[in-house]
């Protein structure tokens, strides 16, 4: 238990009725917030107050509340997932704030992530990128080799596992000054291209996923590194370098 006292806060929250509404920031005072509560629990308290008053509660995405599903988002005080590092919004605790603070809460901002309502954005552009090649086809022929029988170097296995921890929350896009999705796409590309099972479709995968990423209207990566800093899973920029190499090789061999 934290020794900090309960806090009174002012929340400045983006309210938007639907995708067509212009939206605006609205101030809400919240009282007696425990420093041990999570950020989403604090929003639950606010919503309970709003419902009791007969007002519309604030819509926000959430699911597992354990930092693994990638549903929660929120741009808190000018940072994706708030001021803490390597945590999702559901794992951000109110002890990171002080009594009397004003906290701004906005949805992810990117043309490819349109706001649906309040703090909820449509991240289906990520799904379409995944569908373009972020998988390994299971073309079983009856004599498929046991995956455990294929030796994989420790380094490749570790790097693939690290890339696979991407939860697709979109913090990389939200924080990038160009709204680029390169960190997300590169994590998916690297995760498969490092493993023998993923090497078979590596060329089509990178070409198709990058093509879909460009179609969705994400910006270009300018290597600021902001995505890596704000990523709740610590996905490395090294994955972007891997994807660039993969893309270059695939483009050349496709033309040859």
């Amino acid at each position: 238990m934290s020794e900090k006292k309960d806090m009174d806060l002012t929340l400045k929250i983006w309210r938007q009725k639907d995708a067509q509404d212009k939206g605006q920031m609205v101030n809400y005072p919240v009282k007696s917030i425990s420093p041990d509560s999570s950020f989403l629990e604090m929003l639950d308290v606010l919503n309970e107050d709003l419902v009791n008053k007969g007002d519309e509660p604030v819509a926000f995405d959430h699911d597992c509340r354990e930092g693994i599903c990638g549903m929660c988002s929120l741009y808190i005080n000018g940072e994706a997932h708030g001021p803490d590092r390597k945590v999702t919004t559901c794992q951000l605790h109110m002890r990171k704030f002080k009594d009397g603070d004003t906290i701004t809460i906005e949805p992810w901002r990117a043309n490819a992530f349109p706001v649906l309502k309040d703090l909820v954005v449509d991240r289906s552009s990520f799904d379409r990128i995944q569908q373009a090649g972020g998988f390994i086809s299971v073309n079983t022929s009856g004599n498929t080799q046991d995956a455990n029988a294929i030796p994989i170097s420790k380094i490749d296995a570790d790097n693939a596992m690290d890339a696979a921890t991407c939860i697709g929350c979109g913090a990389c896009v939200a924080t990038c000054k160009n709204a680029s999705a390169m960190l997300f796409v590169s994590a998916k590309v690297a995760q498969f291209s490092l493993l023998p099972q993923g090497k078979v479709e590596r060329k089509e995968r990178v070409l198709n996923m990058v093509h879909q990423m460009d179609l969705e209207g994400f910006g270009n990566c300018t290597n600021t590194g902001a995505c890596e800093v704000e990523c709740p899973k610590g996905i490395s920029l090294e994955n972007i370098a891997i994807m660039n190499t993969e893309y270059l090789k695939a483009s050349i061999s496709k033309k040859a």
Partner: peptide, 18 residues
């Protein structure tokens, strides 16, 4: 890149990450 985010943040702190 500017076109990829037409609606900007009200509060943004890019200095904290880049």
């Amino acid at each position: 890149n500017n076109k990829a985010r037409i609606k900007k943040y009200v509060n943004n702190k890019p200095n904290t990450n880049s």
